[in-house]
């Protein structure tokens, strides 16, 4: 919310390049982390990195960060909320059911 006024939503070229480099670094980091034995945390690390990358794309490339209103953020958050509901309540069944 700092650098640009909310009406003109495009960031500077430098920001784009920095985000692009961060995304590539994140990709390499994911691959490296996958080859290290972290026990049960491998999946968590991979998903965390993926989420950070997705956030970078959404905030900077899709201009969610500079969006003039909170509405777009609300759309994103509520979608993720309902996706979470689908996964969590399904797991409420699968996590407690014996099936083969």
């Amino acid at each position: 919310m700092s650098d640009h006024s909310s009406s003109e939503h495009s960031s500077s070229l430098g920001t784009y390049i920095a985000v692009w480099l961060a995304l590539i670094a994140g990709t390499i980091l994911t691959v490296v982390a996958a080859h290290i034995n972290l026990g049960p945390f491998n999946a968590a690390v991979a998903l965390t990195i993926a989420t950070v990358k997705a956030l970078l794309v959404a905030l900077f490339f899709m201009h969610l960060r500079g969006a003039s209103e909170k509405l777009l953020k609300l759309v994103v958050i509520s979608t993720i909320f309902f996706l979470f509901i689908l996964l969590a309540l399904s797991m409420a069944d699968y996590g407690t059911r014996v099936w083969s």
Partner: peptide, 22 residues
Amino acid sequence: GFLVWAHHMFVAGISLYAGLIF
């Protein structure tokens, strides 16, 4: 409305725990 769907499945074999929640 999105939180209640498995009440259609109480006798279909979901876990009792999930049944209670739904």
